[in-house]
Amino acid sequence: MSSANIVLSVPQRPRIVSTGAALRWTLIAVALGVIGLLIAMPLASVFAEAFRQGADAYFGALGDPMAIAAMKLTLIVAAIAVPLNLVFGVVGAWAIAKFEFRGKSFLIALIDLPFSVSPVVSGLVFVLLFGMQGWFGPFLIEHGVQIIFAVPGLVLATIFVTFPFVARELIPLMQQQGTQEEEAAVALGASGWQIFRRVTLPNIKWALLYGVLLCNARAMGEFGAVSVVSGHIRGATNTIPLHVEILYNEYNFVAAFAVASLLALLALLTLAAKAVLDWRLSVSPKPGERKT
């Protein structure tokens, strides 16, 4: 398993296995066709609709006070949810990847669980807990605390939905890397925190960053779950995706797609960031990083 850790510096030599140019370009064309139909065209249509009435209408829609309120709220929610999932993703991945124990499959499946919970249900569970008909709701209302239909509910639903992202990204990598380096560090007398900071973290930092980016993208784009706990109060509990829906329902299609294009841009920025990460990785391979 750990053979991948050895850095090989084989000089470039002619490939024995090569693909004919015709086949090669056919493959590329088919792949591009699939991506084009399934992903690029929906994406393009978002921008096409957003700019249908020109750039003025586009930026006008983004400058609307309600849109700005939605952006602020989305940033606040992500700023709370993402760091929490970052910390617990790393912690969870450490427990799962660095130790062997019975019930591991079960634990991984539990961490994956929020993936398969319908967004509708992800929101509903918090209504069942904190709604007035729920377990803690009457107590909270009595004490004037609003969880659902307010920021805390949005944050909770977002954490729930993005729960597996960081851990999911880290677990396979850390399992592949094995435990030899950490064991060596122990033998050299390092403490747990030192091992993590000096040995493990450098090995996983790019995957970690990527996990965080994805987690963030999803946190900002989540619709179904936050829709259930939001209450849709204008200017107060509408995140960007909810604001998009409202604009769309007001037949204000240009504004709806303009605001939606922000999230599409976020996706592209996320990936630009990832491309930079890849590039840095290939430019400055450090010991312990497996990348040719």
Partner: peptide
């Protein structure tokens, strides 16, 4: 959980 969220919730209200 409740205490944490209490602190959290009061601000918004």
């Amino acid at each position: 959980l409740i205490i944490g969220l209490l602190i959290f919730g009061c601000g918004t209200l």
